[in-house]
Nucleic acid binder design. Structure first.
Length: 652
RNA sequence: GCUGCCGUAGCUCAGGGGUAGAGCACUCCCUUGGUAAGGGAGAGGCCGGGAGUUCAAAUCUCCCCGGCAGCACCA
């Protein structure tokens, strides 16, 4: 005699155990039609699942968020079913729902090609039209393994073997075809609809382990209706338009080439942005009590051995023999006995060297040592991506040497600094994560308790909310991470603060405490932007190339309608340039339409047009990027307003 | 590093065993035109690199290099 409480609080009584379908039918005919699953006490179930207990329940339709996940999950099954119908030599593995869609990993000798997609999609549509009903069965474990093995589905059999002993082995049938799955599923294939599309093909390791076989992963997207699918595809196009690699070329900011694989050639435009950003950060650091240093690129392997990098990190380091290359004789270019040096992948050991010069007193702490440190890391080639993931990059790095009792205060100060920087740079959605002790770690649990608490308390005292990323900390200490959400909703990890008691120990850093005894400082590794290269890439994509005036390489172009105004236009350009603005004069013999279009495409924030009228009145006609409107403004006024807008956010 | 796709002019791309193509950009000429492409002419490529097959390779095969997507990596 279950009593079902609906989301609106209404109660319905049933004489017998009731299924979702029956409940929906009891509520209304139209709901019965739309129902695809139901939630019982917060758990999602198949529509034909029955409950005999009193429960809070809700009917799920295609339009609910859970409904969309079901559509995607079923679409993954549909994909597997279609692929096995068309390519019988294929083994199925797993096919989860992901953001915006789903994927399915297949094992098959012959590679799939994106040209197969059309055929597979057609088959999927056929299966939707066939409206195959879903049927769940629970199989005994041994039988399930045997049946999948008999089908040649070795991956599935392996999955079942690894399921916890007490877990039901559920098999879902969609017509004749079936798959191991924990469910739930839509009542039939018709409910998936046809707003799906296969997107990409990629290799993926079985169980995500690179020692395992490579499977073929097919990515798809699925939505409630055609309109949403279209919107999604449109969103992808928009993201493509703001790709920093494309904008970098169009705006002449930088380039990359084979001969310097993974390193950026910054052009004058791009480097202008870099210099502005760097100057801004430098001013902020100075305000927050940092000192700036510059340390060597090439450092003897001995120091890297001492710091521990040689053991832990050498596969990512560029190593150079300290020898004169022999390019004349046929023998080895370098003496195999030559001493080895490494190009720094991090600045921290060098900063400890600076700290270690002379004797430090507790009065010197906290010592905040910053460097725009140029580092090289030999990243896996497949990981390189535009200027976002490179082999040479410059960190806005700093290390704070302090006492244990200063960590909380320094953490708070850092959080304040980081927040103000992100705000200045236009990032409003900033999230903080506390990454705690990983499984593989050094140190005692008491030490970890203490370290995690000090960071957590500092965040709480600073009034900051944070999320805990359990197990994501470094092997020696916990860390804070800053995640920024950009204009189109993507999340980027930028800032970080890492506690490090280990490196000062390894490199023998010490200070004299109040009582005259020698003590170890603790180090806080911290960055706000992360890498200049990557952050500039993020800024470019966040603004879709339309940079705020203080960062824009060319802030204004002065251009003419007819050559009669050339003299005046040049005077305007000279005046603005003398005032400190980055201005170009465009006196070319082209029509105004053409010039406006060209400078708009180049993302110049302000176009100042001069014709006979403006020359006469000593004004300019101002057209701002992204607007079709023009405004006539006196030369003095435009100078003042552009200057104000071009002021970096910390100087306002 | 792994899997798949790709590499032709500065850019976007077409072509495809037998003198290499378009649009835009570039140079010159005409045009002086009021806010997102005026008109004409010209120049520009060892078809990513190397080897092989062939009378003949940009085109077919193999090996490298690079790009894109994903995976793995990112103490």
């Amino acid at each position: 005699m279950p009593t079902i409480t609906l989301p609106d609080g209404a109660e319905r009584q049933f004489a017998e155990p009731v299924s979702g379908a029956e409940l929906a039918a009891d509520i209304s005919k139209s709901l019965a039609k739309k129902a695809v699953a139901w939630k019982v006490d917060g758990e999602l179930y198949d529509l034909d699942h029955k409950t005999e207990e009193d429960a809070a329940a809700a009917i799920v339709t295609r339009d609910d968020p859970e409904g969309l996940d079901l559509i995607r999950h079923d679409a993954a099954h549909l994909l597997a079913q279609a692929v096995q119908a068309l390519y019988p030599d294929t083994q199925v593995t797993i096919g989860p729902v992901i953001e915006d869609g789903f994927y399915y990993d297949f094992a098959r000798e012959e590679p799939f090609s994106t040209e197969d997609f059309e055929r597979i999609e057609r088959k999927m549509q056929e299966l939707v039209d066939a409206d195959l009903p879903t049927r769940k069965e629970v199989w005994p474990r041994a039988e399930a393994i045997a049946r999948f093995e008999a089908l040649g589905e070795h991956y599935k059999a392996e999955l079942i073997k690894d399921l916890p002993e007490d877990e039901e082995i559920k098999v879902y049938h969609h017509g004749e075809w079936y798959d191991l799955c924990r469910g739930p599923h839509l009542p039939s294939t018709k409910h998936i609809g046809k707003a799906f599309k296969l997107m990409k093909l990629a290799g993926a390791y079985w169980r995500g382990d690179h020692r395992n076989a490579v499977l073929q992963r097919v990515y798809g997207t699925a939505w409630t209706n055609e309109k949403e699918l279209k919107q999604y595809l449109h969103r992808l196009e928009e993201a493509e338009k703001r790709d920093h690699r494309k904008l970098g070329r169009e705006m002449d900011l930088f380039h990359l080439q084979e001969e310097a694989h993974g390193s950026v050639f910054w052009h004058p435009n791009g480097y202008t942005m870099w210099l502005e950003l760097e100057a801004y950060i430098r001013r902020k650091l100075s305000k927050y009590g940092y000192v700036e240093v510059k340390t060597p690129q090439l450092i003897d392997a001995k120091l890297w051995e001492k710091s521990g990098h040689w053991g832990k990190y050498s596969q990512n380091m560029f190593v150079v023999p300290d020898d004169v290359p022999d390019t004349v004789s046929d023998g080895a270019v370098f003496d195999p006995e030559a001493k080895l040096m490494a190009i720094k992948p991090m600045n921290c050991p060098a900063h400890v060297q600076v700290f270690n010069q002379g004797i430090k007193s507790y009065r010197d702490l906290p010592l905040r040592m910053a460097e725009f440190g140029c580092c090289h890391r030999n990243e896996p080639h497949g990981a390189l991506h535009g200027i976002m993931r490179v082999r040479q990059f410059t960190q806005d790095d700093a290390h704070i040497f302090c006492r244990w009792d200063q960590i909380a205060e320094e953490t708070k100060k850092f959080c304040a600094l980081a927040s103000s920087v992100y705000e200045d740079l236009g990032f409003e959605d900033v999230r903080i994560a506390l990454a705690t002790r990983p499984e593989m770690r050094i140190g005692t649990d008491e030490e970890w308790d203490r370290m995690e608490k000090v960071l957590a308390d500092a965040l709480t005292e600073a009034g900051l909310e944070y999320e805990v990323l359990a197990g994501e900390g470094a092997f020696y200490a916990p860390k804070l991470e800053y995640h920024l959400r950009d204009a189109i909703g993507r999340s980027w990890q930028c800032g970080t603060l890492q506690l490090d008691p280990l490196l000062p120990e390894r490199l023998g850093a010490s200070y004299v405490d109040e009582d005259g005894s020698k003590k170890r400082p603790v180090m806080l590794h911290r960055a706000i932007l992360g890498s200049m290269e990557r952050f500039l890439g993020i800024l470019i994509e966040n603004h879709a190339g339309r940079m705020p005036l203080w960062l824009a390489p060319t802030q204004a172009v002065v251009t003419t309608i007819t050559s009669d105004a050339d003299g005046y236009a040049q005077e305007v350009a000279d005046t603005l340039e003398a005032a400190g603005l980055r201005v170009k004069a465009d006196l070319r013999n082209e029509k105004i339409n053409y010039k406006v279009r060209e400078h708009s495409n180049a993302k110049v924030p302000a176009i100042l047009v001069c014709g006979a009228r403006e020359a006469e009145e000593r004004t300019v006609s101002v057209r701002r990027l992204g607007s079709k409107e023009t405004r006539t403004v006196s030369l003095d006024d435009i100078k003042a307003s552009l200057l104000e807008e071009a002021t970096a956010p910390d100087l306002r």
